[in-house]
């Protein structure tokens, strides 16, 4: 098996995460309706450790997936990478400097697309450029280039509610790609799509990324086949509080083709990941049962 993605020790990592910790201090509503209505104490304080002791690094041009059971804090890790939520310990370095506000190197793709319902496809794709002050021909050129890349030519004037879920996420991806970020942070981007559309979009993403080599991607998912198909490396997280459980190298060459799904290596890796995930899923359920 050609190991094209062996990490050269001298290469500088694009993203470094050290001992990341996030604690949510939230209020939980009391279970009795009357106690919620009456004044005072309708809520109780709850402290939840979402992630603890998370360290990882991502090399330039690498596609890394963060895989874990629901509620393990994988999305929280990604959101901290883009400084969308503050963290309580540790630090994040991107290109060697510590992240305190959304870094220019990063572009974020949201699970529920996050499109502006009052903007057409063109205006949604151009949103980030507009905010960044890119005007006129330059913006138009970038917008139409990425609309074409994601296969939405002909839908420029459509509003999000006129598009299917898959097409809406194409808009979301184009909007982020139009900023030409060095790092793409994708939070379960296909999680809200039906199974068939999800498979199509995974293959579309491979095609889109092949069109712009050298881009670093951090991809959050709970779909292990998706992680295997797309990634160079998979970081498996434990159930809450989320920690790095193991890191799995995915040794398939690029450009990727979905025929790898039939290889013995793929099937073996899938079995291993499933075993690993199933343990965590089980401890999530046990945790939930003790809480009850």
């Amino acid at each position: 098996m050609p190991d094209t993605y062996a990490i050269e020790p001298a290469r500088k990592p694009k993203i470094v995460v050290e001992d990341l910790r996030k604690v949510y201090r939230t209020k939980r509503q009391r279970s009795s309706f009357l106690r919620r209505v009456l004044p005072g104490r309708g809520e109780e304080d709850v402290v939840v450790t979402a992630i603890d002791d998370v360290s990882l690094s991502v090399q330039e041009g690498e596609f890394v997936s963060i895989l874990g059971p629901s509620g393990c804090g994988k999305t929280t890790v990604l959101r901290i990478l883009d400084a969308l939520v503050p963290h309580d310990g540790g630090r994040v370095l991107i290109n060697g400097s510590e992240v305190t506000k959304p870094p220019v190197e990063c572009g974020f793709v949201f699970q529920d697309f996050g499109l502006y319902p009052w903007r057409t496809v063109v205006d949604n794709v151009g949103f980030g450029l507009e905010v960044a002050g890119v005007e006129g021909d330059k913006r138009r050129t970038l917008v139409s280039r990425y609309i074409e890349l994601v296969g939405l030519t002909g839908f420029e004037g459509s509003y999000p509610h006129q598009l299917s879920g898959g097409m809406q996420q194409r808009v979301g991806i184009a909007r982020t790609l139009a900023m030409e970020p060095e790092i793409l942070l994708m939070d379960e981007p296909f999680g809200a799509l039906d199974a068939l559309t999800r498979r199509v979009m995974q293959r579309e993403l491979l095609r889109i990324l092949d069109a712009s080599p050298g881009r670093t991607v951090v991809f959050v998912t709970h779909d292990l086949e998706e992680a295997l198909l797309l990634s160079d490396r998979i970081i498996v997280m434990t159930a809450r509080p989320g920690r790095v459980k193991e890191i799995v190298e995915v040794p398939f060459p690029h450009p990727r083709h979905d025929s790898i799904e039939d290889t013995a290596d793929f099937i073996e890796l899938r079995r291993r990941l499933w075993e690993s995930l199933r343990q965590e899923q089980r401890s999530t359920q046990e945790g939930a049962e003790t809480a009850l």
């Binding site: 959304p102 220019v104 974020f108 996050g114 502006y116 949103f127 980030g128 905010v131 960044a132």
Partner: peptide
């Protein structure tokens, strides 16, 4: 989520007000 999108695209407070 729409406010967060604006943040992620590094919008200023004034831009968030005007565009979101």
């Amino acid at each position: 989520r729409l406010l967060e999108v604006a943040h992620a695209f590094r919008a200023t407070d004034l831009q968030i007000f005007r565009k979101t």
